[in-house]
């Protein structure tokens, strides 16, 4: 945000105008290449309008924003991002040339942008359904993993007796990638859904336990002594001092947990669970539907990124007292 606000001070108006129009110019160039150049002979699929449509829409939006900026001086955020947006479309155009226009790489494994977009247009309902299945599985696993991770982390961090019995167990089982438990989980649970929930919870549980524990251990001793001189009970010291004090570490643990839960989710879906985005990708790979594989990857990228963004918003709310926390 500070970068955007500094922009107007540092750059002269002309340079800023050029910057604003970089994105539309790059998109225009990409669009021209798409319209003028003929399709490569090796690409047998029939032509589809989606890629051209996307470029057109992007062009209209960016031109509108650039003009808006030119006349009002507003839309600073867009001007700041303009180089990046233009760069993205240039890379996309380059990929279009390499695939659709000249077929320099195998079109079977590297489908053109328009055929990937075609999957999203034609198959969106099913993709959404798969995403729904994945989300249900992931969130159930995360809920169990975060809850148990917090409980064990607090127990180990606060009570010497719990630490004595649980620490070795955590140290022994925690570092095992939870995907290594797949054979065990599949035979121990009645359904593959339950097994996957267990695996996702397991992969989330470990980092949260470790970081909650170390977070609590690192809370300044004086914080507890101050609470003592105000007559705090054990429970009050846990919930009003230890956990809030450990919260920055706990959030790092949850972040690590979420990241490893993504891996576990994908693996679980590719191995056993019916439906879900991971399952979709694996299924399409088997029937050589590589455009569908890429579309699935796109859906994953957007939804996982969204999930992490939501997580960071929650964290920023809880840690608003802290300065200089990790940015997302």
């Amino acid at each position: 945000m500070t970068e955007t606000s500094n922009l107007s001070e540092e750059e002269a108006p002309q340079i800023e105008a050029i910057r604003a129009f970089f994105a539309p110019a790059a998109i225009f160039l990409t669009l021209i290449a798409q319209l003028i150049l003929p399709k490569a002979a090796a690409v047998t699929a029939k032509s589809l309008p989606w890629y051209t449509d996307v470029l057109l829409v992007a062009l209209v939006i960016t031109v509108a924003l650039a003009l808006y900026h030119l006349f009002t001086g507003k839309a600073q955020g867009f001007v700041y991002k303009s180089y990046f947006i233009g760069g993205v479309f240039l890379v996309l155009g380059l990929y279009n040339l390499v695939t659709l226009k000249f077929a320099l790489i195998n079109p079977l494994f590297f489908p053109s942008p328009e055929s990937i977009l075609n999957v999203i247009v034609k198959d969106w309902a099913f993709l959404l359904k798969c995403l729904g299945y994945s989300t249900r599985l992931l969130l159930t696993g995360l809920a169990f993993g975060i809850t148990t991770g917090l409980i064990t982390g607090v127990l180990i961090g606060w009570y010497a007796n719990w630490s004595y019995w649980l620490s070795p167990v955590v140290k022994l089982f925690g570092p095992i990638p939870s995907t290594a438990f797949i054979p065990v989980a599949l035979s121990a649970f009645a359904t593959s859904f339950q097994a996957s929930v267990f695996l996702i919870a397991l992969s989330t549980w470990f980092p949260i336990t470790i970081l909650t524990n170390s977070g609590i251990i690192n809370v300044k001793k004086e914080f507890f002594e101050v609470a003592d001189t105000m007559g705090a009970s054990d429970a009050q010291k846990i919930f009003r001092v230890a956990i809030p004090g450990a919260l920055p570490d706990i959030f790092v643990g949850i972040f690590n947990g979420i990241c490893s839960s993504f891996i576990t989710l994908m693996t679980a879906e590719m191995i056993g669970v019916k439906y879900g985005i991971g399952w979709y990708i694996n299924w399409q790979r088997q029937i050589m539907g590589y455009a569908n594989v890429y579309a699935g990857l796109l859906v994953i990228a957007v939804s996982f990124s969204l999930l992490i963004t939501i997580f960071f918003k929650i964290r920023d709310h809880f840690l608003r007292w802290q300065k200089g926390i990790i940015q997302w």
Partner: peptide
């Protein structure tokens, strides 16, 4: 026999809880 609300304590560094206003 132990700490109590009757005896308040102020440390060298204020040891305010940074997460509270």
């Amino acid at each position: 026999a132990g700490p109590s609300r009757e005896r308040g304590l102020v440390f060298q560094d204020a040891t305010l809880y940074p997460w509270l206003t």
